[in-house]
Computed example of a mutant assay.
Amino acid sequence: MKKYIILTLLITTVSFAQKTTLYCIGDSTMANKKDPEKNPEHGWAQVLQPLFKDNIVVVNKAVNGRSTKSFIAEKRWDSIYQKLKKGDYVFIEFGHNDEKIEDPARYTNPHTAYRYNLIKFVKESREKGAIPVLLTSISRRNFNEKGVLVPTHGDYPLETRLVAQEHKVPFIDLEYHTELLEQSYGPDKSKELHLHFKAGDNPYYDKDKADDTHLSLLGATKIAEIVINEIKQSEEPLLKNLKNGIK
């Protein structure tokens, strides 16, 4: 009996030790939403866990409305930093709210504060032996009258790319891949990726809803699949554990 208990404890300990935590930090396009059974809005990291085996544990710490600046100021990053351990991953996707130039609590200059906040996340993740992964912001559904998808993020994606390159950080260009996604659906059908409802179409909304930034379950799922596909195709050795953890 003692041998059985000891063996069980050893198996449990080894099994627990093999689990890798994937922290997700970012804004509402990534965040978990309340009441997911009824709420049409989903963040793409909200639907990421089912795409991994049990040895990868997704901890989604993205929060609606946050920029790199407010995420740090509210001590949200500190709370994650304290828990980080060797071999963990940190997916970093900010930009939508860093652009809010009318809001001093959130706005960051892309070439200064935004850049240095990304570098802070990268360096402090590495201090703990964790692996940071930088992602550009997802594209908004912003087609002009000619059916051309017009970018809205200014220089924020550029700075994300530069930080990834200069600091040799694994990188997923979500802006590029979600542009392709939006374009593949086209100006009208791409509404299905977002939140477009007439009053009464969905019991969650009592008024017309036309949101081209946030995601429907379909949109969130498609973007989560893009992330998984990019990990699969990556030759980055630091992503090996994540790649092996994909279903």
Rank of each mutant, 00 (worst) to 15 (best):
E124Y: 04
K128Q: 14
G129E: 03
E179R: 07
T112Y: 09
A113Q: 15
S190L: 04
F143W: 11
G245K: 06
R141F: 12
L195T: 06
G26K: 11
T21M: 07
F16S: 11
A73N: 12
K75A: 01
N55A: 07
R126L: 12
K38I: 09
E175Q: 14
K85C: 00
V169H: 14
Y81P: 01
H111P: 03
K240Y: 00
L118C: 03
R140P: 01
I228K: 14
S216G: 04
N60T: 07
E179L: 01
D103K: 15
K243S: 07
H153R: 03
D98T: 02
Y176L: 14
P237W: 13
E236Q: 13
T160K: 06
V90K: 09
S190W: 02
T152G: 00
D212Q: 04
E182K: 00
I172N: 05
I231H: 10
E41H: 05
Q46K: 02
Y23S: 01
M30K: 05
L84R: 06
E159M: 12
G200P: 08
K61V: 01
K198Q: 10
R66F: 08
L48I: 08
T112W: 10
A45H: 02
F71Y: 15
E93C: 15
G95L: 08
P203C: 05
N117F: 01
L215M: 13
G87E: 00
T68G: 01
T20F: 01
A17T: 05
G43I: 04
S137E: 10
W44F: 13
T13N: 02
P110L: 13
M30F: 08
S190T: 04
I80N: 00
N60S: 12
K128N: 08
Q165D: 08
K2S: 11
T152F: 03
D201S: 08
R141N: 06
A31K: 04
L10C: 07
P151V: 06
H167D: 05
H42M: 13
L135I: 07
Q183Y: 00
K191H: 02
R76A: 06
N229F: 00
P187N: 14
T20E: 08
D188S: 11
I138F: 02
G65Q: 09
V148P: 01
N144R: 11
P203F: 06
L217W: 10
V227Y: 06
K33M: 12
E225W: 10
G245A: 13
K85F: 04
T152K: 03
D88H: 10
N32T: 10
A130F: 04
R106N: 14
R115Q: 14
I101H: 09
G147F: 15
Y23V: 02
N39V: 11
I223Y: 06
V163W: 01
I131E: 13
D211P: 08
F91P: 07
A45F: 08
